[in-house]
């Protein structure tokens, strides 16, 4: 099976999202991203992330994909929590509205490097909030992209004013990333067939082994790209936007509705934020302050 073609993660089933134009879905992505970036409060950001996960599942995004994103984000999350928890920057102090933060625990003073260092509650909350924002942005994108046929994606992007060549490259890139992953798997399998015991290696050895894959990976992809370019030219592809289309973009009432809902959500979030402080960081008052 052609990995180039098959591995674009188009959702397997129809939903209201699959019937919408990519332009309205892009508008939704922008609105949700703006709100995610606006909110600082962990409860609000976390609720938004949870809501997006539910919407993604409803839209037919594969749970395995979502789980992979969540697993990958744990590395990012641990890093965030470590730095913000132990080394809160001045912005966290400003958000908390005070110079001294709430220590949850402190390492014994005689420990090397971390001795005497405290883990702060506000730093942890801030780190979790940033993680939730990031997840919201990362997970809303597939709701728009993976629910769109590649052909409709290109048509929609061109209708949105993007040059055809750029839209085609964008859609090709979407198909190419999974190709890279498949190619890594293939090379790894070939190495195992030549006695490479990855399962017996330590982390450093494994990393070294994976690093060696980079060159054949890139070379292989370049060769495939060259073949693809040859094929495209043989099909009269020149990258010109002056071309006809078999299908037209499908902008309908649902798209108007989604745009209206996205605008309301974004506008409502702004008003609630500035009017009643919903989504703002809520500093916990300490006794005596």
């Amino acid at each position: 099976m052609s990995h180039f073609q098959s591995s674009y993660q188009r959702v397997a089933r129809d939903s209201c999202f699959t019937r919408l134009d990519i332009r309205s879905k892009l508008f939704m992505i922008c609105a949700v991203t703006a709100v995610a970036l606006l909110w600082q409060n962990l409860a609000a950001s976390g609720s938004l992330t949870l809501g997006i996960i539910l919407v993604a599942l409803w839209a037919g995004i594969d749970w395995h994909y979502i789980r992979s994103v969540l697993l990958l984000s744990t590395i990012f999350g641990v890093t965030l929590l470590f730095f913000h928890g132990f080394f809160p920057h001045v912005g966290i102090h400003q958000l908390a509205g005070r110079t001294t933060l709430t220590p949850l625990f402190t390492f014994p003073a005689h420990w090397r490097l971390l001795g005497g260092q405290s883990l702060y509650r506000e730093g942890l909350l801030y780190g979790l909030s940033v993680l939730a924002k990031t997840l919201s942005v990362v997970l809303i994108i597939p709701v728009g992209i993976f629910t769109t046929e590649l052909d409709n994606l290109i048509i929609g992007l061109v209708r949105a004013g993007l040059p055809y060549k750029i839209a085609f490259i964008f859609s090709s890139t979407l198909r190419f990333f999974p190709l890279l992953l498949t190619r890594i798997q293939t090379i790894t399998e070939a190495q195992r067939l030549r006695g490479l015991a990855l399962e017996k290696m330590g982390v450093v050895q494994k990393t070294h082994s994976y690093a060696k894959i980079a060159v054949p990976l890139i070379l292989g992809v370049l060769l495939k790209s060259q073949m693809l370019e040859l094929t495209l030219q043989a099909r009269a592809f020149s990258g010109s936007s002056e071309r006809t289309q078999l299908h037209d973009s499908r902008w309908g009432p649902g798209d108007y509705l989604l745009c209206a809902c996205s605008t309301l959500f974004w506008g409502g979030a702004l008003i609630a934020y500035f009017g009643w402080g919903i989504g703002k960081w809520r500093a916990k008052k300490r006794e005596g302050e």
Partner: peptide, 8 residues
């Protein structure tokens, strides 16, 4: 495999 470029 390498000469099919469209989704349908």
């Amino acid at each position: 495999e390498m000469q099919l470029v469209a989704p349908s």
